[in-house]
């Protein structure tokens, strides 16, 4: 589903080159739930933005759903983002001017879908996240957990091949975070491929597989003392 091979991302200024990702490799199979973990500045978010075609990469190869995305133009990348990828952001990223229904509808409109089909998908997605009764509410009228559920509904409505979640519970209290995590697990059980970026080992532990990034490279957790210490601390805490 998602395969990066020797991928690199370099940010260049006149005086310095900074590798956000270096010789990075990952292979996510269809139906997997993968957590990408790592400390701040390790390159997790860069990985996510490249995986979601929000940014281009400098070198290497990236195959998404069997398509080499390196040569795609901006329109083609937009189309893939719209049709194959569902995003769940830490800050929810709902559009504050639009109500719940209209927020979920936005990506479907860009797909040029007919109104009747859009409505059906929106209702299905909102029922799936338990917010079918809040159609006319604006984001500011919802709790953080509810906003994240709307964001998940927006991601699900387009029936994406891949869900990318960036710290999906990072802005939520424990109870709300648990609810959102359970929802993601339910969605995964129904067959969705999910890649979740998190720095929370507890959340990462609920994924099928963890990929750890340090200094822009995938590392084996067993050989990384820092992770061992963090894991030990979290298991005792």
């Amino acid at each position: 589903m998602l395969k990066m091979t020797h991928l690199s991302k370099v940010y260049r200024t006149e005086v310095v080159e900074t590798y956000a990702l270096r010789d990075f490799n990952i292979d996510v199979k269809e139906g997997e739930f993968v957590a990408v973990t790592g400390p701040s500045g390790s390159g997790k978010t860069t990985f996510l933005t490249i995986a979601g075609l929000l940014e281009t990469f400098t070198g290497g190869e990236y195959m998404l759903d069997g398509v080499d995305v390196s040569g795609l133009n901006d329109n083609a990348r937009s189309k893939i983002r719209n049709e194959k990828i569902g995003f769940i952001f830490q800050a929810f990223n709902l559009i504050p001017d639009l109500n719940v229904f209209d927020n979920v509808e936005v990506p479907l409109r860009y797909r040029g879908m007919k109104a009747a089909e859009r409505k059906q998908r929106i209702m299905d997605a909102l029922e799936r996240v338990g917010l079918a009764s809040r159609l006319k509410h604006y984001p500011a009228e919802l709790s953080g957990g509810q906003q994240q559920r709307v964001a998940i509904a927006r991601a699900l409505a387009g029936s994406p091949r891949l869900l990318l979640a960036d710290e999906p519970t990072g802005n939520l209290d424990t109870q709300m975070a648990r609810g959102v995590m359970e929802l993601l697990e339910d969605i995964h059980r129904e067959g969705a491929t999910i890649v979740m970026v998190t720095h929370d080992p507890e959340l990462a532990a609920r994924a099928q597989r963890n990929v750890h990034i340090i200094d822009g490279q995938e590392v084996d957790i067993a050989e990384e003392p820092r992770f061992q210490a963090e894991q030990a601390a979290s298991s005792h805490g």
Binding site: D74, S78, K79, R81, N82, N93, L94, I95, Y110
Partner: peptide, 16 residues
Amino acid sequence: RRQIGIRRAIGATRAN
């Protein structure tokens, strides 16, 4: 600006 970025992220083209 951020809202535009969100729209772009969820599939809007530049033309959209």
